[in-house]
Simulated assay, not measured.
Amino acid sequence: MTIYLPIAELPVNIFALLALGIAVGFISGMFGVGGGFLMTPLLVFLGVPPAVAVASVSTHMAASSLSGTLTYLRRGQVDIPLSLVLLAGGLTGTLTGVVTFRVLRSFGQLDLIIAIAYIVLLGTIGTMMVVESLRALAREWRGEKSTVKRPGAHPWFLRMPFKMRFRESRIYVSVIPVVTIGFAIGFLGALMGIGGGFILVPALIYLLRVPTLTSVGTSLMLTLVTMVAAILMHAVLNQTVDAVLGLVLMVGGTVGAQFGARAGQTMKAENLRLLLGMLVLAVGLRVAWDQIARPADLYVVHVSERTQ
């Protein structure tokens, strides 16, 4: 069954979109990520324009994050005070990202910037997560205990002024780096169509030392709010949100996230990090390959918005 996407100007099979939404929703709920880092490139591979893919994927991430957030809230694995501080920077970053998106699109450089950003971010973070997870698993296989750092041995940026105690995460840190992390996640989410969970979860674990499952639940809540904001801003400022595409992805994402969140609860933290790192790295390599591979059409006529 084929449907027509009015904003993307593309006919697609509705069942293929539903399957895509369910699969990425499952990954979103399982790893605590918005899934946009995977969904956006997949939609581009299907022929959806990058600008429409970035804006429309926000609807899928909002729906799948809502489902996953409810699951983690019921289990008491969401640090609400930490989420609110992250949101203070996240919403500001979202607005900044939407405005930057609009400027780059007007100059015709949006597609290139998105591709380069995906390659750098996914390649770097995926490699770091895989290496760290393999080291942790190797220590476990050798029967070595993980080195637990003393609570007071925080990096310098966590000892900055305006400290807060987050009881659920069992940390006492400055809000300045927390707000900065939130801003970066909101900015990247709006500009690249990613929920930022694949960045936020490692940041919470390795920088702020938040427990893994609490990091996942808190990441989902931040993704939910920032993606709802991104949908509204993209729809008003850029008119690139395809409601039909977003609705189909939302239905599939909501279903998949429920099963993913339950599956994630049964896996060890080290295995979760390793699988997520491998997935992030694989998508980054695929995006890089698409940039250097010989295109099917060697010449493309593009009309810039500035000349219309």
Rank of each mutant, 00 (worst) to 15 (best):
L274C: 05
I176N: 00
G76Q: 15
L112V: 14
R286A: 12
V248P: 05
L112A: 13
G108I: 06
G143L: 07
P11Q: 04
F157S: 04
A23H: 13
V131P: 14
L224Q: 06
E270Q: 09
L272E: 02
G284N: 00
V301Y: 08
A261H: 01
P11K: 01
A8C: 01
M267H: 04
E140Q: 10
L276S: 04
D111S: 01
T147Y: 08
G143D: 07
N13E: 08
V287R: 09
G284A: 03
R306M: 12
Q291N: 12
N271T: 11
V303Q: 01
F259D: 04
V173G: 00
S169R: 07
L275F: 14
Q308Y: 10
R139M: 13
R142E: 14
T59V: 15
S215H: 03
M160L: 14
R273L: 07
L204Y: 04
A293I: 13
V303S: 01
I114Q: 11
R102H: 09
L66P: 11
I292F: 08
L276N: 10
K163E: 09
K163A: 09
I22K: 00
L158P: 11
A288R: 08
V130R: 08
S28P: 13
W289N: 02
I205L: 00
G35S: 15
A269T: 11
V225G: 02
P49A: 08
A136P: 14
S169W: 15
Q265G: 02
A53R: 11
L222M: 03
I22P: 11
G189E: 10
P161L: 10
S219E: 01
R167L: 14
S146V: 05
M1D: 04
L158W: 15
L95V: 09
Y4W: 11
A62L: 13
L95E: 09
R209N: 06
G123P: 08
A257T: 12
S64R: 13
V179D: 03
A293G: 05
L17R: 01
L224V: 07
L95G: 06
L200F: 03
T92K: 05
L208C: 03
F101P: 07
L38W: 04
V225A: 01
L213P: 09
K268W: 09
S174V: 08
P41A: 15
N271H: 13
T212G: 04
L66R: 10
N238F: 03
G217E: 00
L73E: 00
L281Y: 10
L104S: 14
